[in-house]
Design a protein around this nucleic acid. Structure first.
Length: 490
RNA sequence: GGCCCCAUCGUCUAGCCAGGCCUAGGACACCAGGUUUUCAUCCUGGCGACAGGGGUUCAAAUCCCCUUGGGGUCACCA
């Protein structure tokens, strides 16, 4: 284990934090914490066109939401800052000049047009598109002259002969023939450095010991290893995480579903469930335990236990996990999390929830084991807020009610019994017991009363105990709904 | 297409590195039954995989090779 242990997560603020990126961050963080190392957040904003502070903020917030913290970063500072690549240009420039002086890089004056033509021709001949090295052999002095004349150019890395091998902690030894690695652009014609260049410069400057990232970066690694060597620096340990796949088995993309962490947050997935699910994509705690938290991850995570094969994102399992967390959570907390969705749906205001917190929590308790995400609550309890006179009946609910031929007389009889019971409000427990006796006395099967009653009160086929529902509705509304059902279910 | 990576139930995975303990374990989903006034929860059971072919070995899911299949990547994006 190289010391000190220093890992980083380096997102580019050109969009929302991707769930795959979130998992990468999580694994890097867990490894750092497991080994008492340092976890660093670095913002890769070298693409000024697409990078925004807005996205940067959203990414930081998303990571915080997952419970990931960092020891060094753009917001907290640290001894190896700045932590935004755009602010590290001076150091990049210095490295570029050095590489150029030592012959590890050269100036390339080829125009974009020539490069395009080159690639076209190569494609036509079914060759791999790659830079042909035209400018490789230009004398440095001659190159400097052309530069002083103001000729536009880029800086390319001079890839040596031979092959490049490195040990990947997920995959084992990986070998690339250097002929497959073209002389890639380090610095653009506008003077801005490219990703493959800065990532190495910054990882060197920040003394990064382990680089764990998505498998899509595997092919970049030889370029970077070569650069570390040219710089005379220690090559970090690598680990390329398997891709997260859509149901089409391709890299998870917007086409196959929500890819932004924020989407899941907005859909009301508990953060702990997201973390848990992300862990399960490519890693397992012990092969048996499915539900576990960050403490277990930190205690057991080993990069060598990460799977090599890509993992298909299984929404069913994700939803199951989310529900599992909600079921295990406290009523108060679930209520608190659900409240914004209830408000957004226009069911209650913040003030109403506060004023009737006991009532609200009772309703939440009734649905807690049924919802899988916080956002599922409003649609499930909307019937409580509907006007009694226009409450709609779901098809399945009405079907269940109409199964019973004697539904209307039964409801009428029940209503006669119920009215006096409700004169002093709803005592749910007493009502439930009373109704049970009532059913028994008439030698009815419970569904004969309860299914029409459920339809009358909720218009839904499923849901919590009907007597709880009456408690929530209160006496007047309960009676009104049952009265109306004696007509509607006729 | 070149290069690189990968391959256990439909899906996530354990087992593989250190070959026998594997009649391949768990979970999601699905199906059946039980509990419940319905739905959900919960409980029980079922379905269901070592991609194919060669080797190595007394013994292979585990090691090697080939085939097939899948994926990633081929920018002055990151």
């Amino acid at each position: 284990m190289p010391e000190p242990v220093r890992l980083r997560f380096a997102p580019s603020p050109t969009g929302q934090l991707h769930v795959g990126g979130a998992r990468t961050a999580l694994f890097n963080w867990a490894f750092a914490r497991r080994h008492g190392g340092t976890f660093i957040l670095r913002i890769e904003d070298t693409d000024p066109e697409r990078s925004t502070r807005e996205f940067e903020r959203a990414i930081l917030e998303g990571l915080h939401w997952l419970g990931i913290d960092w020891d060094e970063g753009p917001d907290v500072g640290g001894p190896h800052g700045p932590y935004r690549q755009s602010e590290r240009i001076a150091s990049h420039r210095e490295a570029a000049v050095r590489l150029l002086g030592e012959g590890h890089a050269y100036r390339c004056f080829c125009s974009t047009e020539r490069l395009d033509r080159l690639r076209e021709a190569q494609a036509a001949r079914k060759e791999k598109p790659a830079y042909d090295g035209l400018c490789k052999s230009i004398e440095p002095s001659q190159a400097e002259q052309r530069v002083s004349r103001g000729e536009s150019h880029v800086l390319r890395f001079r890839v040596p002969e031979g092959e490049t091998r490195f040990l990947d902690h997920v995959r084992g030894e990986v070998v690339f023939g250097n002929r497959e690695v073209e002389d890639w652009v380090m610095v653009r014609s506008d003077g801005n450095p490219t990703y493959n260049f800065v990532v190495v410069c910054d990882d060197v400057d920040m003394r990064i010991s382990h680089v764990f990232r998505g498998e899509e970066h595997l092919v970049n690694t030889p370029k970077q290893v070569l650069l570390y060597r040219a710089l005379g620096e220690r090559v970090p340990e690598f680990g390329h995480l398997p891709l997260m796949l859509g149901t089409d088995r391709k890299k998870l993309s917007k086409r196959t579903g929500d890819t932004a962490l924020q989407d899941y947050r907005e859909r009301g997935f508990p953060a702990e469930a997201v973390v848990n699910f992300l862990c399960l994509q490519g890693w397992a705690l012990d092969g048996k335990t499915e539900v576990f938290g960050v403490a277990d991850l930190v205690a057991k995570f080993d990069i060598r236990d990460v799977n090599k094969a890509g993992a298909v994102f299984d929404m069913d399992k994700f939803l199951w996990l989310a529900g599992e967390y909600i079921r295990r959570d406290s009523l108060e907390h679930v209520g608190e999390r659900c409240a914004p969705y209830v408000i957004r749906a226009g069911l209650m205001s913040q003030g109403e929830i506060q004023a009737r917190l006991g009532w609200f929590l009772s309703v939440v308790a009734g649905e807690k084991e049924r919802i899988r995400t916080y956002s599922e609550l409003p649609e499930r309890i909307a019937y409580l807020f509907a006007a009694d006179a226009v409450l709609g009946y779901e098809e399945a609910a009405e079907k269940n009610a109409r199964k019973h031929a004697e539904r209307v007389p039964t409801l009428r009889d029940f209503l006669d019994w119920l009215r006096p019971q409700l004169s002093a409000g709803v005592d749910v427990a007493a009502l439930r017991e009373g109704a049970r006796a009532w059913i028994e006395q008439r030698a009815l099967k419970p569904p004969q009363l309860l299914q029409p009653l459920r339809c009358a009160l909720t218009g839904q086929a499923g849901g919590p105990d009907v007597f709880d529902v009456m408690g929530w509705l209160g006496p007047e509304r309960s009676l009104r709904r049952i009265e109306r059902a004696t007509e509607r279910l006729a």
